[in-house]
């Protein structure tokens, strides 16, 4: 497993990069998801794989049954997965919103004519009534 996992992680990473370079926004998001998973896999395999007891302390004893597995990489991955989950939920919502507002998921079309920047903020014309601040 020690050699297979890094190879799988690398293959998934490469696939992710390929998808990242595609023009469709949805494929880009899938690419990010794949890369995120491959990095988690790399983190897992860099934490060394071993077949040992789970690192749980049985009732009545003070330490886990040796030899026990290293729980740290799993804690790290769990954190990374949760963070990734939140970020991807946001990315999906953003992509959906962009599709609704801009009518396309093709990045070439999505990102063109970004010049008109002054329209981004509607100037507040509430000076006369003294502002609402």
């Amino acid at each position: 497993m020690d050699t297979i996992l890094p190879i799988i992680a690398g293959a998934i990473f490469a696939t992710g990069i390929y998808l990242l370079l595609r023009r469709s926004l949805i494929l880009t998001i899938i690419g990010i998801i794949l890369i995120s998973n491959s990095v988690n896999l790399a983190l897992f395999s860099l934490g060394r794989l071993s077949t040992e007891n789970p690192p749980l302390i049985k009732a009545g004893s003070l330490e886990p049954l040796a030899p026990f597995a290293n729980p740290l990489p799993q804690a790290l991955i769990l954190t990374a997965i949760v963070i990734g989950f939140g970020l991807l939920a946001f990315a999906l919502a953003l992509a959906y919103r962009s599709y609704r507002e801009l009518g396309t998921v093709d990045q070439d079309e999505l990102l063109e004519d970004a010049e008109d920047t002054s329209a981004a903020i509607v100037p507040r014309n509430d000076f006369k009534k003294g502002g609402d601040a």
């Binding site: 990242l20 926004l25 880009t28 990010i32 890369i35 995120s36 990095v39 983190l43 990374a80 970020l87 946001f90 990315a91 953003l94 992509a95 919103r97 962009s98 507002e101 801009l102 990045q107 999505l110 990102l111 970004a114 008109d116 920047t117 329209a119 981004a120 903020i121």
Partner: peptide, 23 residues
């Protein structure tokens, strides 16, 4: 706004990628 969405798309994806490299 249309502009903000365009800006946010670029910002979000490049920064997601950079975080993964960091990880």
């Amino acid at each position: 706004s249309k502009n903000q969405l365009q800006g946010a798309l670029k910002y979000v994806f490049i920064n997601l990628f950079s975080s993964l490299i960091f990880l």
